[in-house]
Computed example of a mutant assay.
Amino acid sequence: MRLVVKHVTRYAYAHPIAHMVQQLRLTPQSGPGQTVVSWKIAADGYGSAAHYVDAYGNVVDLVSHRQALDAIEIAVEGIVETEERSGIFGDPPCPAPDLVFLRQTPLTRANAAIRRLGTLAAQDDPIAGFHELMHAIRDKVGYQTGVTEVHTSATEALAAGMGVCQDHAHIFIGAARSIGVPARYVSGYMLLADAQDSEAHHAWAEVKLPGLGWVGFDVSNGMCPTDRYIRLTTGLDARSAAPIRGVRGGGGPDETMRVDVSVLQDAQQVQQ
């Protein structure tokens, strides 16, 4: 499937900022299940950005602003060809060893309730076990925006019984790590059904399984990723895989952010 992505993030400040440094993890890579046909990022300061690959294999653009600005816009546009792989990403090289993905973070740390969920996946058939875990989390934590925020932990979301894709992924990851299975957070885009608004970024989890490599589970949608998904970043949790992170000086205490995302199937492909 050929998917077209348009993604614009706008920040506005009550007073001009004095300086800002942003890490942009907004460049998907070609690999199992996807081929990047074209991709372009437009942002203030992008022409002089530094570029590197982080510890999890994500492409990072380091953008800095030293002029007075009261608004910043980051625009992404691209085309990605995707392939149906039943959620199996496989085992392409990653700078971080598998043992790193056993490390719990403040956002994924398991309590007794999450460890009990983890036992559902501890089966002779790991695929069946992790499907059971995925559906159990979906039953316990209904999808609801506005209840949690970026700093909400897996234990807090489970206790609240509501959350979004970030929370679902954190609970799943915490449960998998609690039974000794490497797990990681994946952020990306998803083509939704007709008339549904795209999320700013969708998120799901992957676990490392013998003989298969990394396999994805999207708790929010109760399925493994398909050719309707585009991988963007990976990390230990939403913080390390965040597509945009930054620090600033000035601008006042209030920051307003607006995100517009469109993910569509290529019109020419649909007509064929």
Rank of each mutant, 00 (worst) to 15 (best):
A157W: 13
A157V: 13
A157Q: 10
G161E: 13
G161H: 11
G161R: 05
M162T: 07
M162N: 13
G163A: 06
G163L: 13
G163C: 07
V164I: 06
V164K: 00
V164C: 11
V164L: 06
V164P: 09
C165Y: 03
C165N: 03
D167W: 04
H168E: 12
H168C: 07
A169T: 11
H170M: 13
H170S: 06
I171G: 14
I171F: 07
I171R: 08
F172N: 06
I173T: 07
G174H: 12
A175G: 14
A175S: 15
A176N: 09
A176C: 13
A176P: 12
A176V: 12
R177S: 09
R177G: 07
I179D: 11
G180C: 11
G180I: 02
G180F: 03
V181E: 04
V181A: 04
V181H: 01
P182D: 04
R184T: 05
R184G: 07
R184L: 10
Y185S: 10
V186K: 05
V186N: 07
V186E: 10
S187A: 13
G188H: 02
G188F: 02
G188S: 02
G188R: 01
Y189Q: 04
L191P: 02
L191D: 01
L192T: 04
L192I: 00
L192W: 01
L192N: 01
A193L: 01
D194L: 08
D194R: 04
A195G: 04
A195P: 00
A195H: 05
Q196D: 11
Q196S: 10
E199I: 03
H201L: 12
H201A: 12
H202T: 13
A203N: 13
A203W: 05
W204F: 09
A205C: 05
A205Q: 08
E206D: 03
V207N: 02
K208H: 02
K208I: 00
L209T: 00
P210T: 04
P210K: 00
G211C: 02
G211D: 02
L212R: 04
L212E: 01
G213M: 05
G213H: 02
G213S: 02
G213L: 04
G216K: 12
G216A: 11
F217V: 12
D218N: 14
D218Q: 10
D218F: 06
V219P: 09
S220H: 06
N221R: 09
N221M: 14
N221E: 13
G222R: 14
M223F: 01
C224I: 03
C224N: 09
P225M: 02
P225A: 04
P225Q: 05
T226A: 07
T226Y: 01
D227H: 06
D227R: 00
R228C: 05
I230G: 07
I230K: 11
I230P: 10
R231Y: 05
L232M: 11
T233S: 09
T234W: 03
T234M: 10
G235I: 06
G235L: 09
G235K: 06
D237R: 08
A238W: 03
R239M: 12
R239D: 10
S240E: 14
S240M: 03
S240G: 01
A242Y: 08
A242L: 09
A242M: 08
I244F: 09
R245N: 15
R245H: 13
R245V: 14
G246V: 15
G246H: 09
V247G: 15
R248M: 15
R248E: 12
G249S: 14
G249N: 14
G250T: 13
P253S: 11
D254C: 08
D254P: 00
